[in-house]
Design a binder for these strands. Structure first.
Lengths: 223, 223
DNA sequence: GGCATTTCAAGAGCAGTGCTCACATTTGTC
DNA sequence: GACAAATGTGAGCACTGCTCTTGAAATGCC
């Protein structure tokens, strides 16, 4: 082959990819409960125990899916930031892109922002990818400047906000970082409620509600 | 017995209660994955199939747990509203009580606000209890009056907000209802992130962050 | 090319799950 | 006491994650 892989290495890579694809399909079709290693093996025309040559266990597969989901979401957000339409619109686009992604793939959103897999706790190796998502929002509003707040920010919180700003390469002041974190939590909360059906009967569709909330947060960010 | 129940009816009621208790204990100890009807039956010194005389299936048990969780949370919120310390403090107390409850019983929070049980979708019968929670927040700030907003509220959103206000017996204007809904989503988002470990490394403990966010929302509610 | 080594797959098996069903036992009521 | 309803029993089905031993194949080295 043109690449320097032996047939065996290539087959292994292909199988790993197919396993992840099938896992993703299962996740999409029936939720995380349907995620079955045996079922994947079946569709792969492979005996159930053979799948453990590729993944040591279910949790490792899930971890891979989690990391992929974070990365894919971050990529989707970055893609939405390609079109520059002014700082405020820029940040709003990121918010809309996040909802777009979440509604398009609710199972993956649940995988990373819901406690979707009971008994599974995300290992350390996921946090790097996890951080990519809020990083997009920081990047989307580099010039944010929160308006003066009525309530002072205490010392400990100020320290935490400083650490956060540093982690995201932001030189924003404490109040602005607070507004960023708040906005992110707001978005996650809105999507959590929407995707879990808590808006059923009240806000359906929730497009306008989401838009209004985003505008409000943009104000709070001084955009 | 002093009550008009036959021994059999009484035994049944006791068993139902014990089943729910054991289920809750399992949920607390090992997450929803560990929720096993067989394990409950075992601890109940009953053969596994006998448990189906009490619950037709796993989902029905979960539904009961979900309803109980909503009700218990709402009760906890109402209890926090006993002490009247001014309208603003009143509403803030509700927010703090919600976090208190969530941190104390993260599994139950995940049960109702996370998509904790894969393959399980909450049936209609849960929405009545579900509504009790936001209702507490509406009740906690009856005199809320959102300050003037920079962005107008469109017709459709205004309609939805009206429906929501009616559902919660509130006569607040659209902007205020929007602020209420926003604040609730904010709280859910904050707790979702905190309980799922998304604040690890940045905001730990998140007490100050939460407090700051609440103050901000209280402002937005004109409290 | 021949051969040892590594890699992979097969298949049986263990312990667990939700759930069903035919059957036995207990309980409440007439 | 007789009969029907409610409850418990135990076997069984189909499924899960996962382990282990055995056999086959591809790989790398001489």
């Amino acid at each position: 082959m043109s690449n320097g892989l032996t047939p065996r290495q290539q087959a292994r890579a292909e199988n790993l990819a197919r396993i992840k694809d099938l896992a993703l399909a299962q996740l999409a079709s029936g939720g995380a409960a349907e995620l079955s290693l045996r079922a994947i093996a079946r569709e792969l025309n492979i005996v159930s125990s053979a799948i453990y040559r590729y993944y040591p266990g279910r949790d490792e597969l899930i971890t891979d899916l989690v990391i992929d989901a974070y990365d894919d979401l971050a990529e989707h957000l970055l893609a939405a930031l390609e079109t520059r339409r002014g700082p405020r619109r820029h940040w709003i686009d990121a918010c809309l892109a996040m909802r777009e992604w979440a509604i398009d793939q609710p199972h993956r959103f649940a995988l990373i922002y819901g406690s979707a897999i009971p008994g599974y706790f995300a290992p350390e190796e996921t946090i790097e990818s996890a951080a990519r998502v809020p990083a997009c929002f920081f990047a989307a509003a580099p010039d944010a400047q929160a308006p003066a707040q009525s309530h002072p920010i205490g010392r400990e919180l100020r320290r935490q906000l400083g650490v956060t700003a540093a982690a995201f390469d932001s030189d924003a002041d404490a109040a602005t970082v607070l507004a960023q974190v708040t906005a992110f939590a707001q978005i996650v909360g809105m999507l959590t409620l929407e995707l879990n059906g808590h808006f059923v009967g009240g806000f359906e569709p929730a497009d306008d509600l989401y838009a209004a909330v985003i505008e409000r947060e943009a104000d709070a960010l001084g955009l």
